[in-house]
């Protein structure tokens, strides 16, 4: 799967779980850029991303990402 496809998939997950159709994600998007993305919704997003791509993150990975690009890194090595 291309990185752009993964980004597209992750964006869909964000839109659905944060209930906001206007969300646009880029590789350098961070939690600060998106109002609803806080530590609480983060878990929800992580679990939804896991379901979407049928993968599992480990506890360390979940804490390590600094932006969307790094999350995509973790996803792409598992696909």
């Amino acid at each position: 799967m291309e990185r752009s496809d993964i980004l597209h998939g992750v964006t869909e997950v964000f839109k659905d779980n944060l209930d906001d159709e206007n969300i646009i994600l880029a590789e350098n998007t961070t939690a600060d850029d998106i109002e609803e993305w806080d530590s609480l919704t983060h878990v929800q997003l992580v679990v939804a991303v896991e379901k979407k791509f049928k993968i599992r993150f480990n506890a360390k990975e979940i804490q390590s990402w600094k932006n969307v690009g790094e999350m995509i890194d973790s996803i792409s090595v598992k696909l």
Partner: peptide
């Protein structure tokens, strides 16, 4: 476990 370790939540979503 990953959810628990990161959030102190004991129930999965």
């Amino acid at each position: 476990s990953a959810v628990y370790v990161n959030t102190e939540m004991v129930f999965s979503i």
